[in-house]
Amino acid sequence: MHSNLLLRSRPSCFTRQNLYRSFISRPRYYSSDNQVKPVDLEFLEQIPENGNRTEGALVILHGLFGSKRNWSSLSKAFSRDLDIPVYALDLRNHGTSPHALPMTYSAMAADVLHFIQQRNLSKISLLGHSMGGKVVMALALNPSLPHSVLHNLIVADIAPIRASLSGEFLSYIEAMKRVESMKLRTRKEALEVLAEYEKDPNVVLFLLTNIITPHTSDPEHDYIRFRIPLETMSDAIQEIGSFPYAPGETRWDGRTLFVKGEKSKFINHHYIQTMKDFFPNMKLDTLDAGHWVHGERPNEFKKLVEAFIATEP
């Protein structure tokens, strides 16, 4: 595996220990969004040489402020080495997928299930990082999920807990709102504004992956905008820290792999029992990395995922 698997943006903000503040002692309960209409998600696909588009597919979900493009190199590698179809999705309100309310895990999981059903995918593996990890767990735990659909669940550095996101995330949204309000025209100008809010250049570059540069042929959009709906994301920050199920409400007995970044606190020993309550057939592997495990250790991460999928009984 070549070094080009390293993500161009590895925001250290996601490795900081204060990103989540547990509030398990005072949980909030959220609606299941059973009546929410799913949206059609945009995606990148990697189809193996045998033309298989459905059986044994791997479906990958990015984290907050990310997109399907974060997984393009690993998607190609997974498809090539495992000889399976791989789909990297843009979750609602991210990338080029539709903007829609509500921005909840139940709604995002419904979107993913809709994608799976539209394409008749079977015996799939679900892989999600951070926010995307909570989406795949929410889908696996949904009692309405057909038993034959999901075979493997892979969660990258997140636990199924209810927690409060750091205020840093709101500050990033405010920075992006300021960029839009200033009606800037160049990437360099936007970078300078974002750098006033965040000194780590990797974080700034990561946020800039969401910009849309001006179109000279479209006078209504002649300044920099962001792909993500900023007001929606601002309103959803608390929800994104949550989780739709409490321990004991439901569980998924299938094969589950958690991959933890050793330097990250998104999974710690306090959460292990909760993880086991939800996913009794789980295993936990650790990599020498922060929260961005697949970006910091792409080769090792790839080996763990491929070995887990390939050794399915």
Rank of each mutant, 00 (worst) to 15 (best):
I47Q: 06
P48H: 02
P48R: 04
E49Y: 09
N50Q: 12
T54W: 09
T54Q: 15
E55T: 04
E55K: 03
A57Q: 01
L58D: 02
L58W: 03
I60A: 04
H62M: 05
G63Y: 08
L64M: 14
L64E: 06
F65V: 01
G66Y: 09
S67M: 04
R69K: 13
N70Y: 08
S72W: 10
F78Q: 02
S79W: 08
S79K: 02
R80E: 14
D81I: 04
L82I: 00
D83E: 15
Y87K: 08
Y87D: 02
L89F: 07
L91A: 15
R92Y: 10
H94I: 10
G95A: 11
G95M: 08
G95P: 01
S97D: 06
H99W: 11
M103V: 12
S106E: 12
A107H: 12
A107K: 07
M108S: 12
M108E: 11
A109H: 01
A109G: 03
A110T: 07
A110C: 05
L113S: 02
I116K: 00
Q117A: 05
Q117T: 11
R119V: 03
R119A: 06
R119W: 07
S122H: 13
K123P: 00
K123C: 05
K123H: 10
K123D: 08
L127H: 05
H129Y: 14
S130T: 12
G132A: 14
G133Q: 14
K134R: 14
V135D: 12
M137R: 13
A138G: 15
N142P: 10
S144F: 08
S144E: 11
L145I: 02
S148A: 15
V149H: 11
V149E: 11
N152P: 12
A156M: 07
A156Y: 05
A156E: 04
A156W: 00
D157S: 01
A159R: 01
P160T: 06
I161P: 01
R162A: 06
R162L: 09
A163Q: 09
S166V: 12
S166F: 07
G167L: 11
G167D: 15
G167W: 10
